[in-house]
Amino acid sequence: MPEPILNVDDLVTGYGRQPVLHGLSLSVLEGEALGLIGPNGHGKTTLFRTVSGLNRAWSGQIRFMGEDITGLSAAQIAERGLVHVPQGNRLFPQMSVEDCLDLGAFSPAKRDNGAATRDRVFAIFPRLAERRKQRCRTLSGGERQMVAIGCGLMGQPKLLILDEPTLGLSPRLKGELRDAIGAIIETGVQVLIVEQDPEFLRRLTTRQVYIEEGRVREDFDAGSLEHDKMMEMYFGLR
């Protein structure tokens, strides 16, 4: 069996002295798109922040493409092609869309391909091409999310981790973003997505994992996230 591209093993971390993840283990296998679901405040964002190096792991190990990346800085991890698109981001408010995207390819090894990658981002999100000179803080929530994902793509990821990409967006925009993420997956970028909407995950990902109280609770195969499981997750009905 090939080594998973991301392997999180027995991860414990939290804020201050309060643990949030209590020994979470999870793998993203070669070629799959993994979705994470679960109630708010149960550690999904904390997991992403720890994987991408923004938070320190208290114990446990994170391996990416066979390399131990536990304890590396966020910049080092991004350079290796594990790119985190954070939740509800305000980007670089005073910079133009174009500058913001360019900075996504900051590390010298990625700058050379920057222009070509930017054209690809504009092909996926044509609206960003129209707004390329506009400052990020003047963008709408949906456009900002597009820039955030665009910046992630500029980092030329092998694995793109998306934290609630459609948070607070209208159903129409949500559909637009879902299609865009689908197009990104088709280009061969692997994704790990947190979402609150099981339908959204079922359409995009090949496997879903249910996280509760800082642990993996359930592992579902493609499309099997059943209705009564959903009811139980969100309404506590058994």
């Binding site: 991408s52 800085s73 966020a74 790119v83 900051f106």
Partner: peptide, 9 residues
């Protein structure tokens, strides 16, 4: 935005 900068490498 320090964190977003870090995530950009």
């Amino acid at each position: 935005n320090r964190e977003f900068a870090e995530l950009s490498g």
